[in-house]
Amino acid sequence: MTTRSEMASLDPPPVPSFDRQAPSRLIEALLVRVSLLALTWWVLVGGTDGWGFGCVAVVAIAALSLRLTPPARCRPRLRHVPGFLLFFLFQSLLAGGDVGRRTISPRLPLRPAILHLPLTLPPGPPTWLLMLVVSLLPGTLSTSLGGRTLELHCLDHGLQVKDAVVEVERRIARLFGCPPAPGDDG
């Protein structure tokens, strides 16, 4: 059971796992995805028109997405999304301020370096989110992912880059509901 769902978190997910999922989890995932897609449709259309097409499209896309990406063991938990979003917004504010300060300063205070950090997050979506968020953090930029080592470019090696990345990892692990377990990933 656990090994199979861990397999599902890797890409590409094996298609047969679609109908072997627990039904309750499938129904929950279907409801969440249909609501999100319906919300997107409402935003795109900008009102109450076109729900005939909308319903068909929403249901079709939700079914397709369930087939292609069945619910994994590590998936974003709705109750942790607002907290993560706030953290992210605050960090991007800091990042913009930081880079702005360095740009305007006549001395151009840059001390760039390349760093290699080992990752503890499971591969797949949690790692992708980490790389995206790290690129928008103050002074860091993901440059490549080799196995489970993230290569970073940082603007100033005096910054506590490592601590910041570990903090993001911890928050993403909580968001996805999977503990950061170092070691092999099955």
Binding site: A95, G96, L136, L141
Partner: peptide, 21 residues
Amino acid sequence: GLLRFPDVYTRVHALTKADNL
């Protein structure tokens, strides 16, 4: 930043973060 920063990596920093904010 895109004009002042010394190499492509630092320029990516400047552009990505400042433009997002």
